[in-house]
Design a protein around this nucleic acid. Structure first.
Length: 831
RNA sequence: GCCGAAGUGGCGGAAUUGGUAGACGCGCUGGACUCAAAAUCCAGUGGGGCUCAAACCUCGUGCCGGUUCGAGUCCGGCCUUCGGUACCA
């Protein structure tokens, strides 16, 4: 049985797709012709497509880079074909610990290893075939870049948003530096090295991100980000509305300020707890309890932060001997210190209301403290603390009010008596940016004995990071070892002074790099403000979800600050955010220590970049990621081979049999109609899938199409060209080198991306002549009938009841109901 | 504990507003080509039943219920896995 000319057999004699040759040919072409240079002065249909820049801690690109960059580049390429002016830059987040740790181990200077890594990575990024605008490439470790970190610091300093304070901070003993709270994982370990983080009191620089807490919260409503990420930022900021109330201390003039979200329960406060580190502890504790309190505090001190904040651990605490006075009824209540109250949140002191708080209830039960309910639980409530709404009881003038009304009334009462006020508390803390490390941006501050901390004058920037230092950790900042760097004259008084020897958290670098990309060589400021205004917010930002409360929060903060000093005019840096999923191996994140890292190069060298990046897209939904397996890559390889062979066997067909722009369906024979429809339906579906980052289905549709091309040989030649032209263009965003090559094989003069354009679907080819109507009896499929589209119901019914199978399932039964969904389903309900 | 996401063939995964579950690919089985193999091409492929075969029947989207003519999809209650968070007053 022979049905068609086996074009796939012809191809077996053809050469296998020579990906090495073709990929380097097109990479060279794109680069030489500067095809991907973006004209940033053209603002019509502009799209800023950004991927998180590379952290070059190793010389290789890993699977995660490919997974982030490949599909995103395909999206950007698609947008370019759709006529957008797409800006897609790439760069290097080049400062940071790994390079320095590597230096400590090997003696190779961080600058040397980093620049070498960048050179190696650049080669591989180019090998991937991204349409990056190489004129906008940047790296953060050069003075031309970090100068502006320092300038930014000074602007923040001027506004009081960069300040120094002595505070308990997270110290990583292995990294020998402090960490921001966001950089400590929930098991108390260092985000970078996994070592258990300890607490230290140190004087450090902070950025006052808390000033923007409310705006950072509100802004979440305006941006198109994954709900999950917005929820994380929402929780991290942790706004809570309540009141501060001053409690007097019995027999003293001291006041203890507490914060509560439930001021309505004041009458139920039966004791008070202050944090063991609270400054008033020593003063309050009566001589009788001094020793016990000391012992207790020592026992707390020796505990790690993780133990102390463990929710499973039983609460501990001790009475101080002192009493506070509840301002609503002047009753004396005992003051305790306990581990469950933290100095770092609120005021470091609470009123304990066991009746309405689970923690307080647990503590009260353990230490036999009184419990008074001030909200009436519903009948049959047999729990402990009652947290829900209900009428107030045992609360004098609040009795009978529900929680919200009682809150309002008591706050009014407190404010009138000047012993309390409505307060909003945030969980968010200021951003600790000092690092006791070498490989980062020097902090532009000089410490003078007379003048105190003096900012380096702006015209003296950059404070250059010296090359020669002893970067092996001695417990202090490596920069302190370079006398020439440290010793300066005070810019104010000229006396001998010393430079700040700490460097900035690398998250400062990444908080504004998207602005610098617009012109990395700009010398008159941090970035070109005209371009900054025109090109922000970034339209589409793609990167890992692990940055949800670090980079993505800091960048929002800095962007808002830059707006406030007039450098940008948008409120948010990243309008749409997409997280690519994580590729795991054997169920675990890939890491050197686990020894489960998959090297992408083995696949790139075996199958080529196009196959590899398309395979990553085909694996599954982009946002989900998944466990790595190379099992299916041969499927993509076969698809690529078949595509190439197909074009090989139609060389120059665009020249010899030029296609029309549009065909009249009525004039086509059955096979041609089939192809024509399939091509156009595929265009319609594929563009929708790519546009929404659903690459797996986009690839699948192209596979369906090539399967359909079995019937291509039966079509007239110019229609074959029509189909192949469109297939090549659809291939191009997903497999750019292959797309270009196929296009050229057809005999096209200009390259696809040089002369970017997309074929839109012919709407008349999207409608069907015939539809398949599924006939169900009692919800079960019993028959399928082919019918012309939009056939009147009565005629459909006739056809349905003519069907033998339908008859056999309905004959002799009582008809209950019929449901007809036009062109889709005919359901008969019988008894 | 709380917040978020996800559970579909042997595997990765598809399925508009509820409307043929399993697209596409891998793998597997059979066939063609070959001296043979690889590659390639063609056909088949959720389980069970019945059958020489087909037709046909039946069960099937983590579990238990519900709504509906009809549920992978909606509702209620669980279970599991993965992220995030952790005494935040």
């Amino acid at each position: 049985m022979i049905t068609f000319v086996p074009i796939f057999q012809q191809m077996t004699v053809k050469m296998k797709y020579p990906f090495q040759e073709i990929e380097s040919k097109w990479q060279k072409f794109w680069e030489e012709k500067k095809v991907y240079r973006t004209d940033l002065t053209k603002l019509d249909k502009k799209i800023y497509c950004l991927v998180m820049f590379i952290y070059p801690s190793a010389a290789k690109m890993h699977i995660g880079h490919w997974y982030n960059y490949g599909p995103t580049d395909s999206w950007a390429r698609f947008k370019k074909l759709k006529g957008f002016n797409v800006f897609e830059p790439i760069g290097y987040d080049a400062f940071g610990l790994p390079a320095e740790n590597y230096a400590i181990k090997t003696g190779i200077h961080p600058q040397d290893s980093t620049l070498q890594n960048i050179n190696d990575i650049r080669v591989m990024v180019k090998h991937m075939g991204g349409m990056y605008d190489w004129d906008s490439e940047l790296m953060t470790c050069v003075p031309e870049y970090y100068k502006w970190n320092q300038w930014l610091f000074l602007q923040l300093y001027k506004k009081g948003l960069a300040y120094r304070k002595n505070a308990p901070v997270n110290w990583c003993p292995s990294c020998q530096t402090v960490l921001a709270r966001e950089q400590v994982l929930n098991d108390g370990s260092c985000e970078r090295c996994g070592t258990t983080v300890v607490q230290k009191n140190l004087t450090q620089w902070f950025f006052k991100i808390t000033d923007y807490a409310e705006e950072l919260l509100e802004g979440l409503n305006k941006i198109d980000w994954p709900e999950k990420t917005k929820a994380m930022q929402f929780n991290w900021i942790g706004k809570s509305i309540g009141a501060e109330v001053d409690f007097g201390v019995s027999g003293s003039n001291d006041k203890i300020k507490i914060f509560t979200t439930r001021p309505d329960t004041l009458f139920g406060a039966t004791y008070m707890v202050i944090a063991p580190e609270h400054p008033l502890v020593d003063k309050l504790t009566t001589s009788e309890y001094k020793q016990k309190v000391e012992v207790y505090r020592d026992s707390i001190k020796s505990m790690t932060e993780i133990d102390r904040t463990s929710t499973v651990k039983e609460k501990t605490g001790i009475f101080t001997g002192a009493y506070a006075i509840n301002p609503v009824n002047n009753k004396q209540i005992p003051i305790w210190i306990a581990d469950y109250v933290l100095m770092t949140y609120g005021t470091g002191a609470i009123m304990a209301v066991p009746g309405q708080d689970e923690r307080d209830w647990e503590f009260a039960e353990k230490f036999n403290l009184p419990i008074i309910r001030t909200v009436q639980p519903p009948e049959g409530f047999d729990g402990k603390a009652y947290l829900e709404d209900g009428p107030a009881i045992n609360s004098e003038f609040l009795d009978g009010l529900n929680v919200e009304d009682a809150k309002k009334k008591i706050i009014g009462w407190l404010e009138q008596k000047m012993i309390g006020k409505k307060t909003i508390n945030y969980r968010l803390r200021d951003w600790l940016i000092s690092r006791q490390r070498y490989w980062g941006t020097p902090i532009p501050i000089i410490h003078c004995d007379k003048c105190g901390e003096v900012p380096v004058p702006e015209d003296q920037l950059p404070v250059v990071l010296p090359y020669h230092v002893d970067f092996k950790p001695q417990g202090g900042s490596p920069l302190a070892s370079n006398e020439e760097f440290v010793n300066v004259k005070c810019p104010k008084c000229g006396a001998n002074a010393k430079r700040d020897v700490d460097t900035m958290d690398t998250f400062v670098d990444s908080s504004w790099y998207y602005l610098r990309y617009l012109n990395p060589k700009y010398e008159n400021g941090m970035f070109d403000p005209e371009l900054g205004k025109a090109w922000t917010p970034v339209d589409t930002y793609v990167g890992g979800a692990e940055h949800a409360v670090m980079h993505l929060l800091y960048a929002r903060f800095i962007h808002k600050f830059l707006r406030d000093i007039g450098l940008v005019n948008s409120d948010e840096p990243f309008q749409k955010l997409i997280h690519q999923g994580t590729i795991t191996n054997l169920g675990a994140k890939m890491s050197k220590s686990k020894g489960n890292v998959v090297d992408p190069n083995q696949f790139v060298y075996e199958y080529g970049s196009d196959v590899f990046r398309m395979y990553m897209m085909f694996m599954g939904p982009y946002e989900l990621g998944g466990d790595w397996s190379d099992k299916g890559i041969v499927g993509i390889d076969r698809f690529v081979q078949r595509s190439y062979a197909l074009f090989e066997s139609h060389k120059n067909s665009a020249k010899e049999f030029p296609a029309k722009n549009k065909y009249d369906i009525a004039e086509l024979n059955e096979g041609e109609k089939n192809i024509y429809r399939k091509v156009n339906i595929t265009i319609e579906k594929t563009q929708n899938e790519i546009d929404n980052f659903r690459f797996n289905t986009a690839v699948a549709f192209l596979m369906e199409l090539i399967n359909e091309f079995k019937g291509l040989a039966d079509c007239r030649k110019d229609l074959q060209t029509y189909a192949l032209e469109r297939f090549a263009i659809m291939l191009a965003p997903l497999a750019p080198h292959l797309g270009e090559e196929c296009w050229q094989l057809l005999g096209k003069e200009k390259s696809i991306f040089e002369n970017a354009g997309w074929f839109d679907a012919d709407p008349s080819a999207l409608t069907k002549e015939n539809v398949l109507i599924v006939v169900q009896v009692n919800g079960k499929v019993r028959a399928k009938i082919e019918s012309p589209v939009d056939l009147p119901e009565a005629e459909v019914k006739k056809a349905v009841y003519n069907d033998e199978k339908v008859k056999s399932h309905t004959d002799g039964k009582q008809l209950v109901k019929e449901i007809y969904v036009p062109n889709k389903i005919y359901n008969i309900v019988v008894k």
